[in-house]
Computed example of a mutant assay.
Amino acid sequence: MEPPPLGPAEIVVDLAAIRANARLLRATAGVALIAVVKADGYGHGMVESARAAQAGGAEWLATATIEEALVLRAAGVDGRLLCWITGPDADYRRAADEDIDVSAYSVEELDRMAAAYAGRAAPARVQLKLDTGLSRGGAPRAAWPALFARARAGEQEGRWRITGIWSHFACADEPQHPANDRQEAAFREGLALAEEHGLRPELRHLANSAAAILRPSARFDAVRCGIAVYGLDPAPGERTDIGLVPAMTVRAPLLLVKDLAPGDAVSYGQRWVAEQPTTVGLVPVGYGDGIPRHASQPGAADRAATVGIDGKPRPLRGTVCMDQVVVDLGGDRPALGSEVVVFGPPGAGGPSAQDWAVACGTINYEIVTRIGGRMSRRYVDSEAGA
């Protein structure tokens, strides 16, 4: 199906790719798939991505916050749903009433939950997060006995049921890093201690996208996949090529073509100067739309990010502006209105999100999650031809 005529810049998301990626991850791991749709589905749209992942076989969905989870429920998305970031004023009661699993990191948090759940007829659903070495969210090792004891007491009181115990890798994208073995061993220790305290969770989960593919021993009862659901490589350079398909294409129209003579400088600060005659094009996307301002490296043309026009890579020149970028056309004069592929899957005619990540010295997660601004988002379904 031909894309519609280009208007303003847009993000095109192929829901068939998300479904296919979910199916592939579920089959690869051989256990339940928790599809992570936080941060507006990593820039792909939270509600639409959630539905596509469920259609691809994801048994669970996950968000960072209760507020994100409530958006899914308000949109009619049902099924198992986990979130893990809450503050002291979190609406635990609302989450329980909407059948959302929340995560507890401490005895103090469990005490706040107990107060919120007072008077409920049915126990709430609570999971425990353990810090096994990331030193971010989760209960540290010294706090596990007290956490498990309080969790079990709450079960016996009928306040909640501990539905899961989980943790998160720090270095899963580096499969040889010794922290991975240490964290998995610590997690197993935590599970054994929880069992000693009488806890019998239905779900034990540790593996993120990279570990779901690269570390079979860490799959347990479920894998939590975020970036891989959207078709991006969670561990570039490792053995992660299982056939994932990027779901996002960012496209914009070419607005202007002009000639440059040697010595002409481009954009704010005049940090890029033409060394020979060339042509440049104007593309209406900038840092106000999530394009990283450092995507064009001053004086280092070989490291500049590119876009695709007429199937050719066109490097960014000069400083990225709020609303626009300038690209080097190398003497070519594409027609005004020509499609500019900022990034997309193979075959889209431009670079990948990973290519942009390399050019910007970051990770593909950041590239797709930050993109948007004034761009519209359009959904297609390549399997349905729509």
Rank of each mutant, 00 (worst) to 15 (best):
R136F: 03
A212Y: 05
I371L: 12
P4K: 15
A170F: 06
T278K: 08
A210T: 08
T63F: 12
G87V: 04
V229W: 04
V326H: 02
A353T: 06
A104K: 02
I34C: 14
D78G: 15
T279H: 06
D97W: 00
H177K: 13
Y92I: 07
Q276D: 04
I371W: 02
Q297S: 11
V107G: 01
S49F: 01
P178Y: 09
V280N: 01
D289N: 02
S209Y: 07
I291L: 07
L244F: 05
P313K: 03
R333D: 01
P216T: 10
Q276S: 13
G286A: 07
A74T: 10
P262F: 08
G299F: 05
A50G: 11
P246F: 12
A143K: 07
R204A: 15
E109A: 07
G269Q: 11
A261Y: 00
R224H: 10
A39L: 06
M375N: 01
V12H: 05
V307L: 08
E67D: 13
E366S: 14
V13G: 04
A16L: 12
A300I: 03
A304D: 10
G226W: 09
G137C: 09
G133Q: 02
E68G: 10
L193F: 00
D111C: 04
D14V: 07
E275A: 15
R136W: 03
A58G: 05
M375T: 02
H44L: 12
P253R: 08
Y379T: 06
Q297M: 07
A69L: 08
G57T: 12
A53Y: 01
S106D: 07
D97F: 01
L260T: 12
D259H: 15
G290L: 04
S296V: 08
R314K: 07
I309M: 03
G373T: 04
G119A: 07
M1W: 13
G311H: 02
G237F: 09
I291F: 06
R293S: 05
V229A: 09
K38R: 14
G45H: 10
L256F: 00
R239L: 10
V266W: 12
P234F: 09
H168W: 11
G344P: 02
V327C: 08
V340L: 08
E109Y: 04
A95N: 03
V13L: 00
P3V: 15
V342R: 04
G237Q: 08
D91T: 06
E339D: 04
R333M: 03
E59V: 13
G373H: 02
A300E: 08
A124P: 03
E2T: 15
P216N: 09
G231C: 11
G330Q: 10
A265V: 10
G349R: 07
G281M: 11
E48S: 14
R93L: 11
R150Y: 00
